[in-house]
Nucleic acid binder design. Structure first.
Lengths: 342, 342
DNA sequence: AGATGCCTCTATAACGTTATAGAAGCGCTC
DNA sequence: GAGCGCTTCTATAACGTTATAGAGGCATCT
């Protein structure tokens, strides 16, 4: 077993409590004692036993990030930032994969983590407003993404309607008229696809273009193959689209591949826009035009909000925070871009 | 605070120890008591306090996966599998990003985790054999990947020499003669690039082709932009290569992009092979020929080995395990492949 | 001088769990 | 009926930490 406070106390000839106070500064300690303790710590190589600390404090120092899948680069990039930020605040982040499964999301929401955690950052996909409202756990919760809205919890996300509208506007500025939407259906009543779909419709309406249901392809998942499959169906239409707005970059990338596989050109025949600005989109051919959310900001805000809640700090301002985004035009909409730029 | 053993004991009218025995079956408990306790648990909704359990048991139930970056899809895919497998064994996996930094790797190796962990799965990049041999921590350790070899620790990886040889052989079977290698240099004395470089050289030698140092481009990192930059340099040669073997898929994808950006064709002018078989390679255009390691097997073995060591089970067989791999021919070497296949 | 206050420091009781030693009850043998 | 062994249970001491109550020393004020 390792070196404990007791060993340090004996070595330094002071009480246990004094050592504890040197270590975590709860009470002031005189200069002479402090130095003696510090020397003993250095000599014996003391590191606090976190299990004991957490038992005593009632906190574990663990926060969970629950996301559908780590293999979606958007979430991997977000997770990487969140891990760093959590570390900066003295917390360790554990990943909880929901695999976009309703049951997994529900039990996570209600506190069935593998480890006891102090707080949860949650990007819901299947679970809706009702489930969040009916939550039984009282662990602090910060929501991210477009899954659930209008609940009494902190919520960090871009303005999905505005972002989608911007993406579709971009396509219309190129003169495209038959613009398709490929997006994940998350359950009929869910708001997720709705927001991006709503932005899509809003943009069309504002421009005086008709909304054509046959150009809206809902998918089962959020991956590249979902985009491929949906695009193949759209290409089989009597009048295929001349542009596609994808729910996210992965779907957009799948759509691009399906178009190219069909022998058509991107953007010559069909222009494509996604959302997320994953690095992959900056290196494929053609490079992918996208809406870039500020991932740093999202992750930072989510972690900080959560930590503030955990530590009981007063959080001022509104619960829901809209983070900035910007349009990054690249080759799939006819803008040149050297690899890795934008 | 939550419900504790004590609450259950009072409710069921038995001692604390009996409740504990019902919960974790250390000692047999009579049928009548067991039922009373079980009912009390169900009624009060007891979940054990893991901090206390870990304090008492001296274990935390946490294992760490230390990898250079989560944004490398290979590691994200590996991590996702490892998280699941760890969960299956009752452990929670925490991610430790080394960012491929020497200091971070060294301190991780020597037990400077943010949280107390029971074991470590480590994919070293900067740190070498010497550092692993000189390790001061005695937390169980399982190495993965090609970073360090010949140390007295469990080690799971593909046979990198054989895999690289296979990749280069594939290029030669297409009739390519000037085959370049783009790979990460991990420090001069490191064995990482050496193994894959060694396989590359072995394949050339076996085929009677000369080894040309100017066709070996070493990179600083493992990302797409490293591949782009290196490829641009290779294209600037008087006699550019007609094929490229990339250290991993990301580098290969960067190389492809650089070739296309230069107005050349893949594979018409330059064929490309990578290693990792990340999903991205199955949806880009052209799709990427690659060496596919068995990621499931790597992650499963690593977790199981580690858990066995932690729990003191006897591990038979050799320390180092070579996991299988296979060549997946796709468009970058002239083989057709529909999106997502292979 | 006595009261008051401020610094330091210490002793100790938790936090919730598990492992150990042993008590109680009961049936069996001699 | 004493002795023994078995099963079932209990009391209790840790595990290493932190928060609370308060003791002791010394200066300052009334």
């Amino acid at each position: 077993m390792g070196v404990s406070l007791k060993d340090i106390a004996e070595r330094a000839g002071v009480s246990l409590a004094t050592v504890s106070n040197v270590v975590n500064g709860y009470r002031p300690v005189g200069e002479r004692s402090r130095q003696r303790v510090q020397r003993a710590i250095d000599e014996l190589g003391y590191t606090p036993n976190l299990s004991a600390r957490h038992l005593r404090r009632g906190r574990t120092g663990l926060i969970a990030l629950a996301i559908p899948e780590l293999t979606n680069p958007y979430f991997a990039e977000l997770a990487e930032i969140a891990i760093r930020e959590a570390g900066r605040h003295g917390y360790t982040l554990v990943m909880e994969n929901t695999a976009a499964a309703y049951d997994a999301e529900l039990s996570l929401l209600n506190g069935a983590q593998r480890h006891v955690i102090d707080g949860l950052i949650f990007g819901p996909v299947r679970v809706g407003r009702d489930e969040v409202l009916a939550r039984t756990s009282d662990t602090p919760l910060v929501l991210i993404g477009e899954g659930v809205h209008d609940v009494p919890h902190d919520h960090i996300a871009i303005d999905n309607v505005a972002a989608s509208r911007r993406a579709v506007q971009h396509l219309m500025e190129l003169g495209r008229q038959r613009i398709a939407f490929i997006g994940a259906r998350v359950g009929d009543e869910s708001q997720a696809a709705h927001l991006r779909l709503r932005g899509y419709r809003a943009a069309l309406t504002e421009a005086g273009l008709p909304y054509r249901p046959e150009l809206v392809a809902l998918t089962a998942g959020f991956g590249r193959h979902d985009g491929v499959r949906a695009m193949r169906n759209l290409l089989a239409l009597d009048e295929p689209p001349d542009a596609v707005f994808g729910y996210n970059d992965l779907i957009a990338i799948g759509a691009v591949r399906a178009v190219l596989e069909a022998g058509l050109g991107v953007p010559a025949d069909i222009a494509v826009v996604g959302i997320d600005d994953i690095e992959e989109g900056r290196f494929g051919t053609p490079t992918l035009t996208t809406i870039a959310p500020d991932k740093e900001k999202i992750a930072h805000l989510a972690v900080r909000r959560l930590v503030a809640r955990i530590e009981g700090a007063a959080v001022t301002g509104p619960l829901a925070l809209a983070t900035p985004f910007r349009l990054v035009p690249r080759e799939t909409t006819g803008f040149s871009s050297a690899a890795g730029t934008g």
